[in-house]
C-alpha cells in the first residue's frame, strides 16, 4: 500500500485528534461528571461515588493522552522517521 505524504498523514492525525477531543470531552463532562448518588445517600455512598467519578475521569484523561502518543508513534513508524541513516557529516546543524 502506498504511504501517504507527510502532510496528508498529519491532516489525518489532526482529524483523528479532533474526533478524540470531542468524544472525550463529551464522555468526561456529559457522562462522568453528572454521575451523582441518590438523594439522601449516606456519606460513605457519596464518598464512593466521588471516588468512582475521579477514577473514571483520570482513566478517560489517561486514555485521551495515550491516544495522542499512539498517533505520534504511528506516524514515526509509517514514515520510518527513526530508520534511515543520519545525513552526511557535511550537513550543517540548525542552531
Amino acid at each position: 500500500m502506498k504511504v501517504p505524504s507527510a502532510l496528508v498523514l498529519l491532516l489525518m492525525i489532526m482529524t483523528a485528534s479532533w474526533i478524540i477531543l470531542i468524544a472525550m470531552t463529551y464522555l468526561i463532562f456529559q457522562v462522568i461528571v453528572p454521575i451523582s448518588p441518590p438523594i439522601h445517600s449516606p456519606y460513605s455512598v457519596v464518598l464512593a461515588y466521588a471516588f468512582l467519578k475521579l477514577i473514571l475521569a483520570v482513566a478517560s484523561f489517561g486514555f485521551w493522552l495515550y491516544s495522542y502518543f499512539l498517533l505520534r508513534d504511528m506516524f514515526v513508524k509509517v514514515k520510518g522517521l527513526n530508520r534511515s541513516p543520519t545525513p552526511s557529516s557535511s550537513d550543517r546543524t540548525e542552531p
Binding site: 507527510a6 498529519l10 505520534r72 506516524f75 522517521l81 543520519t86 545525513p87 550537513d91 546543524t93
Partner: peptide, 24 residues
C-alpha cells in the same frame, strides 16, 4: 537539520524530538 544548500531535512536520530516540523 540544515543542508549545505539551505534546505531543511528531518533528523533520523531515534532520540531526536518529534516536532511537527520534523514530521512535515
Amino acid at each position: 537539520r540544515l543542508n549545505s544548500d539551505f534546505t531543511l531535512v528531518a533528523s533520523r536520530e531515534s532520540d531526536a524530538p518529534v516536532t511537527l516540523a520534523r514530521m512535515l
